[in-house]
Amino acid sequence: MARIGVLIEAKGGEVKKTTLGALAAARRDPGEVYALLPEPNAEACHGVLRQYGADRIVTIRTPEADISPFPDVQAAALAAAIDRFQLDALLGVSGQAGRDLLARIASIAGAPLVLDCLDIDFPSGTVRKSHFSGKTTATLRLNGRPWILGIRPNIFPEKIDPRHGDIVLYEAPVPTSKRLVIREVKQGSSGGPDVSEAEIIISGGRAVGSAENFRILKECASVLGAAVGASRAAVDAGFASHALQVGQTGKTVSPRLYIACGISGSVQHFAGMKTAKVIVAVNNDLDAPIFQKCDYGLLGDLFEVVPALTRALAPAQAK
């Protein structure tokens, strides 16, 4: 019987929602699911992990108490855990943090790695992911074990599937490497959720006109519980930071709802967001290509439509 590991990402003692999707993906295999918890003091997560399908919860400890500033050490500890529990696969979330750790683990283990998976078929050992951003989909077969897989956030819905979740303590023997250290985590001023894991995104294009005007998108985002994104044109014009860019040279996203405001819809922008469940376009040009490839199009001035959307949502939130 296969043993599938899931790399658990937690924030403030809570399992990230996207990680529950990874657990659901692992449960597609009839084998045993091992939830790997790199944080030893995350007891608060145990209940949720049991509820969402963990047969075993592996709490990883290392000789050094806090290994969070040492990504190499974390990766070595997880690679050692894969070996110790003879895992056939390790699944994680292909967000910014997950993909870094998964790639480190796969490189240490000399294992096949596919990040940003859109689908996993355990019996055939194949996965699907996008190539050329969203322009084509590739089918890939992983040869050799363990498979290291990162799933695209929001692709697999979380699923309640209660299991025992027996606690296993694992003391990982790891080298005390000090060649790389995270000195500090700098929090910027804008805050807000990151586009790569957001469930709703409202993005602005060149037509937004200025960095100041992005405020109307931010206001709408806050009542929608959305992240703010931007097209390459808006980023290149200096209206928004690179971190917000959606598209082939930015982030690839799969939110439940994507609202594109003043974005004409270039090939490279679509490449980054076409796997969104629902795409809404707001544009004042009926000939904009985005109207040909969206679910709902609003023909109008974004400076009127977006504030109207904010107002329409605000009372609902106040209730």
Partner: peptide, 26 residues
């Protein structure tokens, strides 16, 4: 180690429902 078996086109969705007129109504 990771073998590419095939490439498929990822089609775009078709033309959506277009709304127009008064912003509040839209």
């Amino acid at each position: 180690t990771v073998e590419l078996l095939g490439l498929q086109a990822a089609p775009d969705r078709g033309r959506g429902t277009i709304l127009e007129g008064d912003p509040e109504k839209m």
